[in-house]
C-alpha cells in the first residue's frame, strides 16, 4: 500500500525497483508547456540561461496538471557547451516561437581535443542547472520528485563531432571512437555526481544518438554498452537509461548496463521488450508526446495510455520531451486516463 506517501516517494521507490502497484505519470525529460509559460510569463528562449526562470517553469507542469515530477534543464546542449561548443539560444526569435538551443559549431575531432574542465561545477551552464535544482528543492519541499538528465557518451560525441565523421569512424576505426566515449563517460559520471549533490532525485541518461535507426546493434554492444555499464556502475542512483528511436534490437544490451529503469519511445514494441528483459526490470514509456499528446484528441490520449498499460509499462512516461504546445485538454486527459487505469489495476 502506498497511502500517505508523497508523490516524490512513490516515484523514487519505483525508480529504485520497488513496485507498489500504483501507476504513475511522470518523465525524465523536458515537459514544460506553453500553458506554464503563460501562467508564469516566462519566455522559453530565456529559460535556458536563467536559473530562477528555469526552476519556476519546470514546476508548472506539476502545479497545473499534477504531472508527478519537475525536470530541468529543457535543452540537450549542456554537455556540448561544457567541452567548448558554441550554442545557439535563439534569443532573437519571435517570443512565441519554441526553439530548443542547438550546437552551432562542432569543435571536437578526436579524443585529444576534449578538455574536461578542472572544476565541472563552474563549467558552462552547470552552475545554472545546480542553482535551479536548489531553487526547485526549496519550491517543492520534497513533495514532488526532481529529475534531471545527461546525454549519453555516444550522443555527446555526435553533438560535438561532425556526426557523419563519427559514424564512419565507428565502422572503420572503432578504437578511436572508444577513446572519445571513454572521456565523455567520465564527464557523464562527474556531471551526475554534481547534479545529485545539488538535489536531483533521479537522473536520466539519454543515449538516443546510438539508437538502431542510426547504429547497428552489434556496434552498440561493442562501443556503447561498456561505457554505459561504467556510468551505471559509478554514478549516483537512481538512474534511468533512455533511448528513443528503434530500440528493440538493443534491449538486451540496455538491460545489461545496470539501470534502475529503462525508458523507450513509441517506436519500441513493448511486448517484444518484455520478452527480452523479462518481468523484473522497471520499464517506462512509451507515450507518444507529439503525434498523440499534441496532435491527437483527448480520446486518442486515453487510448494511447491504455496501450502503454497493456504493453506492460510501470509508469506512463512520454517517449521524449513533451512538445510545449500540448493542448490543456490533452494534458488533463493524460492525467485522468492514468488515474482511471490506476483504479482498473488496483
Amino acid at each position: 500500500m502506498s497511502v500517505g506517501k508523497t508523490s516524490r516517494e512513490k516515484v523514487l521507490e519505483l525508480l529504485n525497483g520497488k513496485r507498489n502497484g500504483e501507476l504513475l505519470c511522470f518523465s525524465g525529460m523536458g515537459n514544460v508547456t506553453t500553458e506554464g509559460m503563460k501562467q508564469t510569463g516566462i519566455r522559453f528562449a530565456e529559460s535556458h540561461t536563467d536559473a530562477s526562470k528555469m526552476a519556476a517553469l519546470a514546476a508548472t507542469t506539476h502545479k497545473l496538471f499534477g504531472f508527478e515530477c519537475a525536470v530541468i534543464p529543457f535543452d540537450v546542449a549542456i554537455e556540448a557547451e561544457i567541452v567548448g561548443c558554441p550554442i545557439n539560444f535563439y534569443t532573437r526569435s519571435h517570443p512565441l516561437e519554441i526553439l530548443y538551443p542547438t550546437v552551432k559549431e562542432k569543435v571536437i575531432r578526436s579524443a585529444g581535443d576534449i578538455k574536461l574542465p578542472s572544476d565541472l561545477s563552474r563549467a558552462g551552464r552547470v552552475p545554472l542547472v545546480t542553482e535551479a535544482l536548489n531553487l526547485l528543492s526549496d519550491d517543492l519541499k520534497g513533495a514532488v520528485a526532481i529529475g534531471t538528465y545527461i546525454m549519453g557518451p555516444f550522443t555527446i560525441a555526435g553533438q560535438t563531432m561532425e556526426l557523419s565523421d563519427l559514424l564512419k569512424i565507428s565502422l572503420k576505426k572503432p578504437e578511436e571512437v572508444a577513446e572519445v566515449l571513454a572521456v565523455y563517460t567520465e564527464l557523464v559520471i562527474q556531471l551526475a555526481e554534481t547534479y545529485s549533490a545539488a538535489g536531483a532525485d533521479y537522473i536520466t541518461i539519454r543515449e538516443m544518438g546510438a539508437c538502431s535507426d542510426v547504429l547497428r546493434p552489434a556496434l552498440f554492444k561493442q562501443l556503447v554498452e561498456p561505457q554505459l555499464r561504467r556510468i551505471f556502475d559509478q554514478a549516483p542512483h537512481p538512474l534511468v537509461l533512455h533511448i528513443c528511436g528503434k530500440s528493440n534490437g538493443i534491449m538486451d544490451s540496455m538491460n545489461r548496463v545496470g539501470a534502475g529503469a529503462l525508458s523507450v519511445d513509441q517506436k519500441n514494441d513493448l511486448r517484444e521488450t518484455r520478452k527480452t528483459i523479462g518481468p523484473k526490470p522497471i520499464l517506462l514509456g512509451n507515450f507518444d508526446p507529439f503525434n498523440i499528446l499534441v496532435k491527437g484528441t483527448p480520446s486518442d490520449v486515453k487510448r494511447a495510455v491504455q496501450e502503454c498499460v497493456n504493453g506492460g509499462v510501470d509508469a506512463v512516461w512520454p517517449g521524449c520531451d513533451i512538445w510545449p504546445t500540448v493542448p490543456t485538454e490533452n494534458m488533463n486527459a493524460l492525467m485522468q486516463a492514468v488515474k482511471n487505469a490506476r483504479k482498473g489495476r488496483n
Partner: peptide, 14 residues
C-alpha cells in the same frame, strides 16, 4: 531491412 545502418550508408555515399 536493417542490414545496413547510417554509418554504412555514409560510406556508400562517399
Amino acid at each position: 531491412e536493417e542490414e545496413y545502418f547510417v554509418p554504412e550508408l555514409l560510406l556508400c555515399a562517399d
